[in-house]
Design a protein around this nucleic acid. Structure first.
Lengths: 144, 144
DNA sequence: TTTAATTCGGATAATTTTATCCTATTTGTG
DNA sequence: CACAAATAGGATAAAATTATCCGAATTAAA
């Protein structure tokens, strides 16, 4: 569904949100350990998220990553997915046709509309706060 | 959503079904041309579909691919997807956790259930006959 | 029986995605 | 200021996916 980069990005964002609520800035190393991801690759993804203003980075000693507490609830999964994978998941034709729309639909165009719309709504409706709270309460998990 | 191989596989299957209704066996070359796919790569995918009994192949001169007319309506998209991409699309955790289930859910586990279930139902509910008929009637298209 | 048209299958190449390495830059602290 | 702890970013490598090539096997038809 998502690229591995995107999976890491989502998990990292959740962990950063969680830490930010606790008032602690987290390092790349801590993130990679927590979400069980390769450090250097995760670094690239975090840079991407920083560039897209999903998270903030602070360089130098005692630096790390954080998210403004007041923004966490307004950051949607769709922002993260868009930053990393782009909008292909919504816009790309299910069968890869260059032009696929109501006037010139691929064979599964109409079949896909519902699924895709539900996915889109879900991503646009889910925010980092709720995901972080589930981790905090032990309702969901970031690894294993 | 699907791999490119799977996209080609779906389009090829639809075209083969369409031809089979017309009583004509189609060659790899004709298929690749019709669905706008690389010939040799398409060959590999067709071999896969043959091995999984989704389509039939006849070797030698005047050989090609076909599907038993009486079976076309019972071949579901899910069969094709499963043959090529496996069941990852249904079973794999949205965030790549090795174990992700009701007892140990990833952060988006419950969010994904609806989308995934709808996708699964759609794939299991859509058969080659309806897709081929839409192509025949000019309601949908295999390329461009 | 030879030939031509095919699929089959192994080997290889190109591309994309994932992952690693190393150096530069930034910044708090002694 | 010097040093250590971080992120940033470029270069490269490994792995997976996509794509190509070529010869072998099969089969209908001349």
């Amino acid at each position: 569904m998502f690229s591995k980069a995107c999976e890491y990005g989502i998990k990292a964002s959740i962990f950063i949100a969680l830490s930010s609520y606790k008032g602690v800035r987290v390092s790349l190393k801590a993130i990679a350990k927590e979400i069980n991801s390769p450090e250097a690759f995760t670094a690239k993804i975090l840079q991407d998220l920083v560039r897209h203003d999903v998270i903030n980075s602070i360089k130098g000693a005692h630096g790390g990553f954080e998210i403004d507490n007041t923004l966490i609830s307004s950051i949607k999964l769709s922002h993260i997915v868009n930053a990393i994978d782009g909008d292909a998941i919504y816009s790309r034709c299910g069968l890869g046709l260059h032009t696929c729309n109501e006037n010139h639909p691929c064979p599964v165009h109409h079949k896909f509309i519902g699924v895709r719309e539900e996915l889109k709504l879900m991503l646009e409706d889910t925010n980092l706060e709720e995901l972080a709270l589930d981790i905090k309460s032990g309702t969901s998990f970031l690894k294993v």
